[in-house]
Nucleic acid binder design. Structure first.
Length: 497
RNA sequence: GGCGCUAUCGUCUAGGGGUUAGGACGGAAGAUUCUCAAUCUUCAAACACGGGUUCGAUUCCCGUUAGCGCUACCA
């Protein structure tokens, strides 16, 4: 703990040297944006303090959990570069432990068997709701003497195990983000610990595991605030020290409702598909609900994020997921990445688009030069396989809007062909020479150089937007430049000149 | 419905008893003229409402409203 910055308050109720945090997703869906942000915060916290991140898969709901989702979550974490130090542990493999914990709770009088039929409870709940009463379990079976309950169990009667919530007083905790949160015990119902099939429910498995795994800081979504008092009660019943709870506000869609499928991409892998670079996504996510000290630039790499991260910077209000800002982060990262780092990522995009790059000189160096020329204009990795396609293959088509804007005048085609001849004849082919030839040619024809430049750009790249034309020419090389200028007419959808 | 949490530009947020309420994204305008998705410059844009407390509230307190969360033999 020697290198903990003094600016960050650090308390560790478990007294372990460094914090132990966990990310505990339920594999009932892919790693979604909210889950990824929770994972990220835990990861940043662990890395900042040199602690451990435990990955735990909460798959006690056998109906809804699938192996495919487990793999999806792991994939998402790997893509985001969030490595964990322990696990993944699977709750489905720790069932005995929960049952032991439940047995102890029964023994110590903190739990009791409930024989009420599920259907009956549902009916009662429905009536209570209809009458405007709180649909809370009345504690009917709490009155059953222990011996009688044991007898009925032995006779084979099915039952769930419920936690006996204190009937008065209140339960609270000091949240690192929200401060003191207090709930009256009368608001809490005798929640189920063990289902009738003997499987644990969420509350039991979470706190049993968090205690067993010596989790010092529970950093999770704010949707768990209301669950926390039940868990606090469980810690107390188990005579275990409370961890620090830090609840993180939720991420909402643009309509301010909880982020969900109807807001588009919900799995983080969908962002990879869209050409988002992981570090950019991570940076964006980190700033949703957390702000470092004032004056820090928003673009921060891992090291900076880890150095600055702390629970005290977490906000208490929900944050709206702003796609435009994500895209901005993405462009920042792409432009600041060295081409060497971009190349493998871009190769994936080419593969996905079925594009086989034909480098002018067949070398990676050429590809890197091309990437360096283009990267300041990229918004997504996908651009390299789509709007930048013409740089990497001769098999491309023109953007109709660009043609309409710069290449609609038919008289341009013979001019471009003539210009192409000049280039073909020129012994020199540099940015300066290419520019001189074009400008001289334009002057001779009494044409505006800009008109010719713009037309050439479309002819060469199929796009209305590109880097400086002469840089593009040199990059493409003389042969391609000449060819494309000559065939501009067919590219524009007209008969070849 | 009950309980809990939250409330500063459209969005992410800084700030905090007296400020021209700051920044970033996005938007608008201009510059550049070889395009803009590049670059530079400029602009618009917020303290939810009502009561207190106070010399003074956006800031503290209470209420209202709104949003979100929880209210399962899901997690």
């Amino acid at each position: 703990m020697a290198n903990i910055p003094a600016t960050h308050s650090y308390q560790n109720p478990l007294g372990t040297l460094a914090p132990r945090v966990r990310f505990a997703p339920s594999p009932t869906g892919y790693l979604h944006v909210g889950g990824a942000r929770t994972a990220l915060f835990n990861w940043l916290y662990a890395r900042h303090f040199g602690g451990k991140l435990v990955l735990r898969i909460e798959d006690t709901d056998a109906q809804r959990s699938t192996e495919e989702m487990v793999e999806g979550i792991l994939q998402g974490m790997r893509w985001l570069g969030l490595d964990w130090d322990e696990g993944p542990y699977f709750q489905s493999k720790r069932l005995e432990m929960y049952q032991d914990a439940a047995a102890r709770l029964l023994q110590t009088g903190h739990a009791y068997y409930c024989f009420c039929a599920k259907e009956e409870l549902e009916k009662r709940r429905a009536i209570a709701t209809a009458e405007g009463r709180a649909p809370k379990y009345e504690g009917t079976c709490r009155k059953i003497p222990q011996e009688e309950a044991a007898r009925r169990r032995a006779a084979g009667e099915t039952a769930v195990l419920r936690f006996a919530v204190p009937q008065s007083g209140s339960t609270g905790f000091d949240d690192a983000v929200f401060g003191r949160v207090e709930f009256s015990n009368s608001e809490l119902e005798d929640f189920v610990l063990l289902r009738s099939d003997g499987g644990p429910t969420y509350h039991l498995s979470v706190v049993t595991d968090d205690v067993d795994m010596k989790i010092s800081h529970v950093v999770r979504g704010a949707d768990h605030i209301s669950n926390t008092p039940k868990q606090v009660l469980l810690y107390q019943a188990m005579s275990a020290p409370l961890p620090v709870f830090a609840h993180v506000p939720l991420i909402l869609g643009p309509d301010k409702t909880r982020l969900s499928k109807r807001h588009g991409a919900t799995s983080v892998m969908a962002y990879r598909e869209e050409g988002i670079v992981p570090e950019g996504f991570r940076n964006f996510l980190a700033l949703l609900g957390w702000t470092p000290a004032e004056g820090t630039p928003e673009v921060m790499g891992d090291a900076e994020l880890i150095r600055l991260f702390g629970l005290e910077g977490i906000s208490r209000s929900n944050a709206v997921f702003d796609r435009a800002k994500l895209d901005w982060f993405n462009t920042e990262y792409i432009r600041n990445y060295p081409a060497e780092k971009l190349l493998p990522l871009i190769k994936e995009e080419w593969e996905k688009a079925g594009l086989k790059p034909q480098a002018a000189d067949h070398s990676d160096d050429w590809l890197l030069a091309a990437i360096n020329l283009l990267k300041t204009r990229a918004r997504s990795l996908k651009d390299f396989a789509h709007s930048f396609r013409a740089y990497f293959t001769d098999d491309f088509s023109a953007d109709p809007a660009a043609v309409a804007k710069f290449l609609k005048d038919e008289t341009l085609f013979p001019q471009l062909a003539e210009l192409a001849e000049l280039y073909a004849l020129s012994p020199e082919f540099t940015e300066a020479s290419a520019e001189k030839i074009l400008r001289d040619f334009a002057a001779g024809k009494n044409l505006k150089a800009g008109t010719l430049i713009n037309a050439s750009r479309v002819a060469l790249t199929g796009q209305g937007v590109a880097p400086s034309l002469f840089a593009v020419m040199v990059l493409l090389g003389k042969t391609r430049t000449v060819d494309r200028l000559k065939t501009a007419g067919s590219l524009a959808g007209r008969a070849p000149a």
